[in-house]
């Protein structure tokens, strides 16, 4: 059984009496441990797909199952808990809580889960080290560079060891060498920890690193290639 299953998913936005079909009959399966990129030009539906999978938006029709559970059957608090325990988010920008330090941001999900401080630190400190953030634990996001902020976001998403990490254009605001570093890091974590990554990008650099590239165009699935290794 696949970790994520999309079955004939449609998402239509209504603005006024204008109907914008963002996703049309999308069928997609993602297995545990994949490092998959959603590719496609601007407006092709990448963000929409990630939002649906992340349970922060609802499809207009179709069926979405994650870890065997039908998302449409969940109540609002259940969905919150589901996001808290099973999903890690990395957004393009504005990821971090400005009033919390880098370490507190990285610990945030664990705090919400109610983990004890020592345990949290044991979990987060090595992660920050590994992400090259050692020594920056007490800085506020405003005192970190864009690349450092994104790495804190990666640490936060990973700290809780969710089933899947969803990253919407995580490198869009980074210069290419920082972007490459971040990608290699995520790839490493994917290999070492077996964590599933699903991210969106139209950046060729990102697609290079992906183990599988799913191509979208105007809300339709137009390609699905797997690389070996």
């Amino acid at each position: 059984m696949a970790l994520i299953e999309l079955e004939k998913i449609c998402k239509t936005y209504r603005s006024g009496n204008l109907h914008v079909p963002a996703l049309v009959d999308l069928d997609l399966q993602v297995d545990t441990g994949e490092f998959t990129a959603l590719a496609g030009p601007s407006g092709s539906g990448k963000t929409t797909a990630l939002n649906l999978i992340g349970c922060i938006d609802q499809p207009t029709s179709g069926r979405l199952r994650i870890d065997g559970r039908n998302v449409a059957d969940q109540t609002v608090p259940q969905l919150s808990d589901f996001r808290l325990y099973q999903i890690g988010f990395i957004f393009q920008s504005y990821n971090l809580i400005p009033v919390l330090t880098a370490e507190e941001n990285a610990e945030f999900v664990l705090m919400l889960q109610g983990m004890r401080p020592e345990e949290r630190q044991q979990r987060v400190r090595p992660l920050l080290e590994r992400l090259g953030l050692g020594g920056l634990e007490n800085r506020r996001p405003s005192d970190l560079s864009g690349g450092q902020q994104q790495r804190v976001a990666v640490a936060r998403a990973m700290a809780a060891r969710p089933k899947v990490i969803l990253a919407d254009e995580p490198t869009a605001n980074l210069d290419s060498s920082t972007a490459r570093e971040l990608l290699e890091l995520m790839r490493e974590l994917n290999r070492d920890e077996g964590m599933t990554f699903l991210f969106s990008s139209h950046d060729p650099l990102v697609l290079e690193h992906a183990g599988r590239v799913v191509r979208l165009q105007d809300g339709h699935l137009v390609g699905d290639e797997r690389k070996d290794g």
């Binding site: 609002v76 589901f82 996001r83 936060r156």
Partner: peptide
Amino acid sequence: TQEFGVLLAMGLHPA
């Protein structure tokens, strides 16, 4: 607003 969006996405309950 955007920050609340992040908090909600992280799994903070509306309550």
